[in-house]
Write a protein that binds this DNA or RNA. Sequence first.
DNA 1: CAGCGTGTGAACGCATTGTGAACCTGCGAG
DNA 2: CTCGCAGGTTCACAATGCGTTCACACGCTG
Lengths: 226, 226
Amino acid sequence: MEALLVHPDPPPPALTQALEQASYPWKAAAGAQAATAAEPDDGWSGAVVCADADPEGAFALCRALRKRDLPLEPLLLVVTGSQLGDLELREDLFDDFCLVPPQPAELEARLQHLFWRTGRGTRPELVEYGPLILNLETYQAVIGGRPLDLTYMEYELLKFLATHPGKVFSRETLLSRVWGYEYYGGARTVDVHVRRLRAKLGNEQEHLIQTVRSVGYRFGQSRWGI
Amino acid sequence: MEALLVHPDPPPPALTQALEQASYPWKAAAGAQAATAAEPDDGWSGAVVCADADPEGAFALCRALRKRDLPLEPLLLVVTGSQLGDLELREDLFDDFCLVPPQPAELEARLQHLFWRTGRGTRPELVEYGPLILNLETYQAVIGGRPLDLTYMEYELLKFLATHPGKVFSRETLLSRVWGYEYYGGARTVDVHVRRLRAKLGNEQEHLIQTVRSVGYRFGQSRWGI
DNA sequence: CAGCGTGTGAACGCATTGTGAACCTGCGAG
DNA sequence: CTCGCAGGTTCACAATGCGTTCACACGCTG
């Protein structure tokens, strides 16, 4: 996801903390010029403008962002309680607002709703490891840009392994954590699924799942290269 | 100015106090029926729904208000901090939200902004995805220029799926979000409606609704670019 | 009553999955 | 160096779980 434009530069700690906690990428900019200079190739995904310290500058920035060829949306304004009255004649400068200090959960919900409204969809939940990307919402997997057509159990197994990279799991552990039932008899089950996974990963990437003899399987590189 | 619809009946004192202070006229209603019964001749000017005491009832009311011939707008939801997570898949049920206890100044500013937005908002109210266009005002659907003759449930199901492209939904989720009741017994219902939808979409487009085995259904392709 | 929309149970077909057995491989013992 | 074996890989096949499809019942509306 592209970055959010955040004002001012540097932003107040409470705001950055809330953004980090909601795991939205962001870049700060002091003014309209800086915002244009630092803009990502695909454009800003939105803006969060904090108006408590320098209201004039903040509103000026909002106005500039709205006057561009492609008006920047969505724009979330952060204001103090005493500034609420100032919003009345500036309704066109923002899409939503919240009060200082911004609460992470509220900020996240507001951004979520704004992105939904502006049609950009939701931020996908991803599991990433090197060339592998698992999209937990769409149940799709991609390795090095190539989509993987995985069955349900394959996906679940890969998801479990990829969320604990480097760690070795015994077959029993995998059976109970991925399959969800107690192990009774079929350790081969894991082997075969690992094999099918490796086959679908392809020659290039099949080393991502390593066999640890007499122990189990590990996903990804161990720190020691073994 | 026409009255705001307020839920529940009676509303929490903090809410009424804030509304009085902001001098918005209002009437309380406990549910969808009461809301229809008490509706002014010119319709509600908007709604403020407080969800802290009875979330299920509140969301049901929102859904009902949105499903009317003329969906009620704007709709402001009042929630507790712990309910923020519940908003994620209900983005279509409200236009803005604020936290309990509602602060008069914030509530006034939010209502002000909502009225401004809906007053001059650009709202053809379209849902678009590739060749598919849903006109939420006229309840018509078009695929690749060809009009679709959908039944009510088919339209609702397609609308829900198309507003969350790429995301996989279980049958239970679809039942509770589209049908609006708790699942008891009929997962086949979803299958059959999906089948009827696919049939009407035609051979060309039926792939828009994909089956994710052991999980559910997905509309459209996921986007990896973001 | 006919027609339509909708929900539900049952039959069917097939992809997925689990399992046993054969085969391979690495490693230690002798 | 060779042998034996424990453990891993691969294969083939059967069972089962899941989705699709069909047929029908129910309720509503004209």
